[in-house]
Simulated assay, not measured.
Amino acid sequence: MNRRLRVLLAVVLTVAFVAGGSSAAWALWSATGTTASSVTIGKTGAALSGTSDMTTTFSSTVTSMTKPVTLTNAGSLAGTSTTTVSVVSGSSAALARAVSVVAWPVASAAACTTTAAVGTGSISGTWESLPSMTSKLAAGASAVWCTRSTPTSSAPASSTANITIGLTVATGSWTSGAVQGGFYLNTPAASPALTCTDHSGTYVELAWPTSSRPKDTWYGAFVGPGATTMVGQKEQDYYGRFTLAPDQVPASVATSGPVTVTVKILDSAGNPTTTVVGTGTVTLFTQNDGKAIRCGA
């Protein structure tokens, strides 16, 4: 059979199958067409806000920082947010390590205040190493975490830590690109040390470094959180020193153990300014005749 006869026979058979409703004919006929379909799968995404407001310089009057961070699922699929923290190279990892952090989820940024109690689901660590602030988020939803940062006694003076928070949102095996936000933690220069002289446990004498300030400048000695509780009598530079007895330290501050004393300049109304002229440590203890105080820790 030549080629022309084979082609003619194929055409005749096809027409016959179609006319007879044959499934084979339908298969042959439909194989010559095309089909197309599409499925919208969705996307992952992440957004982070609030970190720029976390830049803080700690001092004797700024002893902690409480700020909210908002984590957002910017994708079209529900997912789980996870965070990481890191210290930017060249800044102080020692300071980041010396700032303790506690973070917990809150209903809104307005609920993250300096007086807010730490809530359920909290995490804790330092700004060098902090567990993830993990939240399950619907598409487009956000979670607010309240962070509270407090420098410890080992925080180095005159230091800056540049902290970066990273955020990703994962859905199954898909993970969004990482977004980042950063802030700075700072500590001031170390205050000059007060000169302390013991007097047999009955009192100590604390002298501040001399300066070029007018001799009639007033000074006060302060203890307690934030160095806000004044102890002893205010003095001028003419005298240049304070005396402090054990019963002059309020029991609400300490009844025993080391106490940090901070000397500040007072304004014309007798209120403390932010200018610190010296700090030192005294220790409250008990001896045979009752409460006592000595220099040092």
Score class of each variant (00 low, 15 high):
residue 184 Y to G: 04
residue 81 S to K: 01
residue 47 A to K: 03
residue 138 A to S: 14
residue 162 N to D: 15
residue 117 A to Q: 14
residue 28 L to S: 12
residue 139 A to F: 03
residue 181 G to W: 03
residue 24 A to M: 03
residue 223 V to Y: 03
residue 43 K to L: 08
residue 20 G to E: 12
residue 43 K to W: 03
residue 32 T to M: 03
residue 89 S to I: 09
residue 157 A to D: 03
residue 174 W to G: 05
residue 197 T to Y: 01
residue 125 G to F: 04
residue 130 L to N: 10
residue 155 A to I: 10
residue 3 R to Y: 02
residue 113 T to Y: 00
residue 144 V to M: 05
residue 205 E to Y: 01
residue 145 W to I: 07
residue 93 A to P: 07
residue 158 S to N: 15
residue 31 A to R: 10
residue 32 T to N: 14
residue 21 G to H: 11
residue 276 V to F: 04
residue 135 S to D: 14
residue 157 A to R: 10
residue 123 I to P: 14
residue 216 D to R: 10
residue 18 V to S: 06
residue 36 A to Q: 13
residue 63 T to C: 05
residue 282 V to F: 01
residue 169 V to L: 11
residue 29 W to L: 14
residue 155 A to T: 11
residue 162 N to V: 11
residue 54 M to D: 10
residue 149 S to F: 07
residue 214 P to K: 10
residue 39 V to G: 08
residue 47 A to G: 14
residue 143 A to Y: 04
residue 189 A to D: 13
residue 210 T to N: 12
residue 219 Y to S: 08
residue 284 L to K: 11
residue 220 G to S: 06
residue 261 V to E: 07
residue 213 R to N: 15
residue 226 G to A: 02
residue 231 V to Q: 09
residue 254 A to Y: 09
residue 229 T to K: 04
residue 241 R to A: 13
residue 110 A to N: 13
residue 26 W to E: 02
residue 154 S to V: 13
residue 80 T to V: 12
residue 146 C to K: 02
residue 47 A to R: 02
residue 35 T to E: 14
residue 259 V to L: 01
residue 239 Y to M: 09
residue 180 Q to E: 12
residue 189 A to F: 00
residue 75 G to Y: 05
residue 11 V to A: 15
residue 53 D to H: 02
residue 33 G to E: 06
residue 243 T to Q: 14
residue 100 S to K: 13
